[in-house]
Design a binder for these strands. Structure first.
Lengths: 164, 164
DNA sequence: ATTGATTTGTTGACATGTCAATCATGCACA
DNA sequence: TGTGCATGATTGACATGTCAACAAATCAAT
């Protein structure tokens, strides 16, 4: 494809290093904060947060997977564990015998209500507070553009269904 | 800690969603590209890239772990696999009988030379090309500031050694 | 020198994620 | 209405990461 690779110059390398460190470190830092201050892991929080945004706290597994952009098997494994912990419950789906409705239990609701303030504070204190308005806006548009570019290259999707 | 949580408003939620998706999706997209175009996973590439930057292509395991900010056991497990694949070799360390020197093999060198152009192209095409100069600079400073903030909060380190 | 703490690295148990295979159900269309 | 394909979800094998326990070597302080 390219025998004439455009390598990164000194300045570009620094930008790339800063971005790479952020991408590698941010998620685990967020997880550490969550686990320290609540009993939820980052992925468990994600699922419960998705359920919270549904009106009645119930979603089909399919829709959770889509909302989080996860593989089905990943969600399936996680739901099994969360069910064992009593954070969610599953009921059969009336309209489609293949599906399941996932709902938050009282314990799940309690857990996310307890975890949410610390999580939001983490984001506010470490993302919004340190940035100027211009930096925040530029970060927004940069993140959006980078994602769009990767999507256009066909490398974003988890299971790139090659239409061959 | 805070009964008066400063929740995110609509605009902030959008910024946060864009950043979260980038952080969750970028690394796996990069891994997909690497595995598609070479025989290296992202973590294997990281180790070989670190070794490439040492003059003689040899580093102590300790220094690799520090350069990548990884846990020792993670590196140990990975090096065992990479050694089995013939990508790296280990020799005893003369100056410190506890340590090991890790070196690239010819196969490891060949693999990273083969993988590097595509990897650099991925970064250039998806990070630098889509951004204006201003956005790139803002991204740089935003990433730096966010990391600094998390570090100041004591949540960055992998093994936060609590000095209790 | 001896003792005790620190550093370096490995190991095993376990948590989590990916992938391919499987199964049942639903749907489209002749 | 049946036949074939698409969808929803689970499972098991495997890859990878975390954590705590361990062992050996080094260092520091007396």
């Amino acid at each position: 494809m390219s025998s004439d690779t455009r390598w990164l110059d000194k300045g570009e390398q620094e930008v790339w290093r800063a971005l790479r460190e952020l991408i590698w470190g941010f998620e685990s830092a967020m997880d550490r904060q969550l686990i320290r201050d609540s009993e939820l892991s980052g992925v468990e929080y994600s699922v419960l947060a998705a359920l919270s945004e549904a009106e009645d706290g119930v979603m089909r597994a399919r829709d959770i997977a889509q909302a989080l952009d996860w593989e089905r098997s990943r969600l399936s494994h996680l739901l099994k564990r969360m069910e064992a912990k009593g954070l969610v419950a599953r009921t059969e789906c009336e309209s489609d015998a293949r599906g399941f409705n996932i709902s938050m239990t009282a314990a799940g609701h309690k857990a996310i209500v307890r975890a949410a303030p610390g999580h939001v504070s983490f984001v506010r204190e470490n993302v919004f507070d340190p940035l100027t308005d211009d930096e925040r806006d530029a970060l927004h548009s940069a993140a959006t553009k980078i994602q769009a570019s990767i999507r256009a290259a066909g490398l974003w999707e988890n299971r790139g269904a090659p239409k061959s």
